[in-house]
Amino acid sequence: MKCRKCKAPAEIDLPSHNTACCRACFAEYFTGQVDKAIRHHGLINPGERVLVALSGGKDSLSLMLELSRQGYDVTGLHVDLGIPVSSAAARAKVENFCTARGLKLKVVELIKEGLPIPDVKQYIHRPICSACGKIKRHWFNRVALTDGFQVLATGHNLDDEVARLFANTLRWDAGYLSDQGPCLAAESGFARKIKPLYRLTEFETACYAFLNGIEIHTAPCPYSSGATFTGHKKLWSDLEYTSPGTKIAFYDGFLKRGRPAFAQVDKDQGRAVAPCTTCASPTSTGVCGVCRLKIAVTERRAADPDRQTDPDRQ
């Protein structure tokens, strides 16, 4: 197989784009897709500081590298969840990556913040991944706000976005359908949220990470259930296989024709937002959801006889 563009031997076959690339042309293609996303949706303006959420996976690290190469002012943010073994491994991958490439990194340690995920799992009776996701988002927002970042970037790729859009559509969730997309404007004290990889598939970000020698964290979280999203992704893999190009057409079509209709419906339903009385993060509930979680975990931990011999445990 030859590179469609330069006729060198191809390394990457991309049937969705009816093309194949050598590694040099793939790098150009990848950069072009990110640049197109940024320009088309006004994701980053000149001079803005960008905080990039780094989990240690292929998407977030690829995003960080590509944005830095394109000359954006990027700083990574890793939230250390405090899960035995897996969190230390993920954090090490992120720290090594940033050190090796001279990239700025901030780390929030949930153990230090009094809200490690194992305690949330033990004391809060709701699905751990929804609480964990909420806590991570809280810290991304909070650091963006307190450290003066205008933009918060995440590594969501086309497969993530299509799977989520599909799930929201199956439920006809008008609230989510009104604002899902690569750019969520800054409002009520939240930084602008952007997804510059939204045009690139999981396969493409994996190729990029490999070709750039990025070491990624792949060990699954011990609390991971093999979520329903994976099921939807399989379904879409089948669809894409039989009709190449379906994913991006579905997603782009939604942005152009679906979302505006839902945005109209959702317009008048917002609730008043004010700073959390405890941490100053914007919330519509007085004390924000994460501060309420923290209060509950702290109370139950204090009342737990198994933990009382060990008051200094962070």
Partner: peptide, 16 residues
Amino acid sequence: RVNDALVIRGDMLLTP
């Protein structure tokens, strides 16, 4: 399928 996994030999990616 073709885009379900990377196929790696040494430091090269392989097409189908």
